[in-house]
Design a protein around this nucleic acid. Structure first.
Lengths: 344, 344
DNA sequence: CAAAATAATCCAAACGTTTGCATTTTTTTC
DNA sequence: GAAAAAAATGCAAACGTTTGGATTATTTTG
């Protein structure tokens, strides 16, 4: 592999000048810069970023930690972040935590060992407080949190308008005439879910409906959990559910279909996360679009612009069959899908 | 940040001994090794992998290049590869090419600059030959290809049983009594698609049906392309389609529904890639499961075991509504989904 | 107990860059 | 044309680790 020393030797100059020339420093003459660039091309030089990173004590890698890469929500976030970061000359090291705290800690340590320029993270369900994180990533490495964030951890944050979104989703169910609306609330260890629950409650109370804790089904995130929760919800006399996750809603639909409950006539559902499948299943699921691609872009920009504030990305309610029992204007599914990368 | 030099100073020994102690070298006394380990823990030492990599001329990063991360097929491959690689102490740097040749080349150069231990790659549609790749990644870096491979590029390969899969899928359509079966063939620049087309043709010919090139719809991969191709297919009198991709099949269904064609009564469809949505849409899509998670694991193992052969991962036909017009045994969707990570 | 063999540690160079400071070369100024 | 100023380049250390060979400490052997 050819190094700057090789180039320097070939041109009868020193490595420092070559380094500066390639970096476009004003301290080197135009003529030599061109000579160096030509020679570098000719010899097939490629910068050893490992060496450069060591010297500079910092890399051009940004670490992204997500619970699971294959959820569209997260892979779209990664896509959005990557699009911005690549543009700025950064590369992306991805770690999955599989929702486990230990994996999250291990991932943070790994990224620190690589001296990444920043960490973008959405916490695992199993991760319950910011203490370890604070300890592992000191002031050296900027940490940008998205979606699932710890408010007490300093640094930029990008979150969805969870409370607002849940509020409007629940309000929509109320407007559709559902009377006893439960919720698949997710995990209360995560603020995102706490806020959604708050929005749900607010909608009920501002409509004069009672908030009944027995209709709140906690620890519901994956398909099986949704299935089980729907069983209980139906037994408790629910006629609608607001789900804080898409896969749990899918599980709920599984059960309701099995139980012969008609959707949306007898039972309404709205869920968070506009995963691709939600528009394709029967009945199609009404969802809260979280704009993950934009969230990823915002998180990346927050790092590049060195921000430390919290950005709130609005959610958008997509009303589909699962909650639309009063027919209103027609809904175009294609239009929505064009907003994301999903069909590519 | 604490270094081995700090530890050495604290113990009154040299960095080399500390390095060897931490590496578990037999050249260091048991007692000092324990002392070093204790001190390292106490001082909160974390190895600077950048420095180590520079010295060793090689990193513990494996680069993975895929067309698009948010396709379940690829994100599951990444998940599979990661599960094996993490176990072995490697981390994963992911690059998306967005199906463009330039991005693929750029990604390869980036990974080479990082002196990655290996590259796992599935080629972009836009990438048409192995010349550039051969040039960029010399003999220094092992390159493991999966799914979309160049046969003339040396090194390990992991592919699906494309020909077999397409053969059985098409045969199934024939058995269901469809008479004029077309195919959404994908891009012929990729061997995977060429093989699927061959399997499709083989099935037709071995059933005594004519292979009609006007029923082969090329350059079909994304939803829109499937939509347009289905239009032409219907106009050409097709009554069934084998699609080499899942999203193009989705587009085809879009059009057929719009045109009022009944599936599977008047028109049958089978497609490759058991993406999550295929089992949820109406009609549910019959698919060829490619076992992407296992493919990813196989690719990672091929690197770790230093193999250079080609492994073929069998495909599995999931018969669902879109092709089942002769009712046979009941099909359990849950069973299949349990095979992958999708519902988590 | 001295010599030889072995074990443990140290020394110093290396990996390929970057960068503050010193030095040399070129240009400007009177 | 000499002194001063500015521009371009060179020098050498540094980033933190690894590692072959040299050195020192310890154990074994006759």
């Amino acid at each position: 592999m050819v190094t700057i020393t090789d180039i320097a030797r070939a041109l009868g100059i020193t490595p420092s000048t070559v380094s500066r020339a390639l970096a476009g420093s004003p301290r080197v003459k135009e003529k030599t810069r061109i000579a160096v660039e030509r020679k570098a091309l000719e010899m097939g030089y490629e910068r050893n970023v490992v060496a450069a990173n060591l010297r500079k004590g910092q890399s051009h890698i940004v670490g992204i930690i997500v619970p699971r890469i294959h959820r569209e929500f997260f892979s779209n976030i990664i896509g959005g972040a990557e699009s911005v970061l690549n543009q700025a000359g950064y590369n992306v090291l991805i770690c999955q935590t599989m929702e486990s705290k230990d994996s999250e800690i291990k991932a943070l340590k790994t990224l620190r060992n690589y001296r990444v320029a920043a960490v973008l993270i959405s916490h695992a369900i199993g991760s319950t407080d910011s203490r370890d994180i604070k300890e592992i990533i000191g002031k050296d490495i900027p940490i940008i949190q998205f979606d699932r964030v710890y408010p007490d951890l300093p640094g930029a944050k990008v979150v969805g308008a969870n409370c607002d979104g849940a509020y409007f989703a629940t309000k929509h169910l109320i407007q559709q005439g559902y009377k006893r609306i439960g919720t698949l609330a997710g995990y209360m260890s995560s603020l995102a879910f706490v806020e959604r629950l708050a929005g749900y409650r607010l909608a009920l109370e501002s409509a004069g409906l009672p908030y009944d804790n027995s209709l709140v089904f906690y620890d519901t995130l994956v398909r099986d959990q949704g299935y089980e929760a729907a069983k209980k919800a139906l037994a408790s006399g629910c006629d609608a559910l607001f789900s804080a996750g898409a896969f749990s809603a899918l599980g709920a639909v599984d059960y309701l279909k099995e139980a012969g409950v008609r959707i949306p006539e007898d039972f309404g559902i709205v869920c968070t996360s506009n995963e691709g499948f939600t528009s394709l299943m029967t009945p199609s699921l009404s969802t809260l679009e979280q704009h993950p691609f934009e969230m990823g872009q915002a998180a990346a920009k927050a790092f590049l612009e060195n921000r430390a504030d919290t950005q709130v990305i609005p959610m958008e309610l997509h009303i589909r069959q699962s909650s639309q029992r009063i027919q209103q204007e027609e809904f175009s599914c294609n239009h929505l899908l064009n907003n994301n990368q999903w069909q590519k």
